[in-house]
Design a protein around this nucleic acid. Structure first.
Lengths: 150, 150, 150, 150
DNA sequence: GATGAATGAGGCTTCATTCAT
DNA sequence: TATGAATGAAGCCTCATTCAT
């Protein structure tokens, strides 16, 4: 796409990234919410499902993920705020899931907030490492070992 | 500090960050290594110690941490490589600790690498959240809940 | 020409000057070499031809000459070296011409190198003076009187 | 000398250079004038004397010459004007000498101005070459060959 | 007189954005 | 729609000069 055409379709660089970011965030958020409400599964299975869904999402979108998770970081204050807010939403989503699990007695953690951060951070880290690998392994292969850690 | 004075003390912007980064990385690396070799403690205690040491380190250096963990991200290709390499070293340190724990039968995880990423990511995430908080809680208060998750 | 456009066409300031300088130097060098090999002319005529060619070259390029001979001096070490090397080449060209004249018995000077410097310096000086004149005379009109001095 | 002390003795960088330049110019100008009025010598001898005097002056001041003839070129418009004016004075001095020689029938050139430029340029060039040499020859050794060219 | 840390205007360059075609 | 040359604000850095000691 030529430079000029880009500015025909998007207001500016931020605009494109914001659109993409909103889309991605809501997709992942959807996965998290669906994870919590998937009927008769145990908490462990639900949690795993969420992570697997996220991994599957990125698995087929490595270049997009690189842009959104690496290149889009620290771009400018305005977008940075949007990025942080997106991450917060995901964190809250994870937290709500954990709370439900906690209430139903499936898990028992001293601090749901901290647990959500830990799970979120662990997932994020595994994706980041996968993005930096020269010859990336199958991201979804990492879901089971990750689940076993928790 | 005036523009000129900065360049009197540092070769360029990168120079400052690289110096700081090297220092911080080796400090944290030291904590990780000391964690593994702290005598007669159990693995759990050792692991906790590492995390607590890291948290204590950042607790008293919030502004520095903001610069190194937020503002220094995506600065330029040269420094970005240094940053990634630093993170890799920390990851490897964690991995080596876990391997020792695994061998001594204290823990049992299917993939030490993934476990290291998870712990590293969880720790990183908690620090990041703490950095973004308006009125930060005591970072070290989060160490125990974090330990309980694992 | 806007700031940005300059860097669209040239890598940097040096790049423009280097390109121009190479071009000009090789043009003048060509004139010097052609001067020596212009068939059945006597040495005096050949020498005159060289100077006239150089003068004609600059006559129609006064502004360019101002940039290259005045503004480009002492710009920066890298370009300065290029400038000096260019001048050396011209000097060597003149020297080779004189050597040929000397061998063929047309001239008789105690030191060809010094003679080359003298001719080169005299020519250079006349061009410089012409560049600094408010209402410049015809540069080529100075070729004959210059030839008579030698 | 420390930076601060420099600005105690001189108003600014220009000030030092201007003072030096005035001094050098008047010294050389003196040599040129004395050359013309040195009693009962022939024109050739007088001319030679002038050049030799100039050469002797620089011979023992190579570093100073480097500063004034190389580094001081193109420094800034204000000093550049002073530099050009200095060179013009020298040129006029040479011209006056030549005019006297011409009147007394010792030389016969079609254009005294051009002749002055040629001599001035030749002398300048030889000094410049000497300044750029790694292992400089004796500058005064070049006076005789130079004289023979004319 | 003497020092060298501190200052900031100005230079070179980049890059997101605009505009003429 | 589509192009890519043109723009200029903003970033990094240098260096002549000043100032506190």
């Amino acid at each position: 796409m030529s430079v000029g055409l880009f500015y025909f379709y998007f207001k500016n660089k931020e605009d494109l990234l914001e659109n993409l970011y909103d889309e991605i965030t809501s997709m992942i958020l959807g996965a998290i919410e669906r994870g919590a409400s998937s009927g008769d599964l145990g908490s462990m299975e639900k949690g795993c499902n969420v992570v697997v869904t996220i991994f599957v999402f990125f698995q087929t979108r490595r270049e997009l993920a690189k842009v959104m998770l690496i290149e889009a970081v620290g771009l400018n204050p305005r977008f940075e705020q949007k990025r942080i807010e997106g991450l917060k939403k995901l964190l809250i989503g994870t937290e709500q899931n954990l709370e439900a699990f906690q209430k139903s007695g499936h898990i028992n953690v001293p601090d749901v907030k901290v647990a959500a951060m830990a799970i979120h951070g662990a997932t994020y880290q595994i994706i980041m490492n996968w993005l930096y690998e020269e010859t990336p392994v199958n991201l979804t292969d990492l879901a089971y070992p990750l689940a076993q850690v928790s």
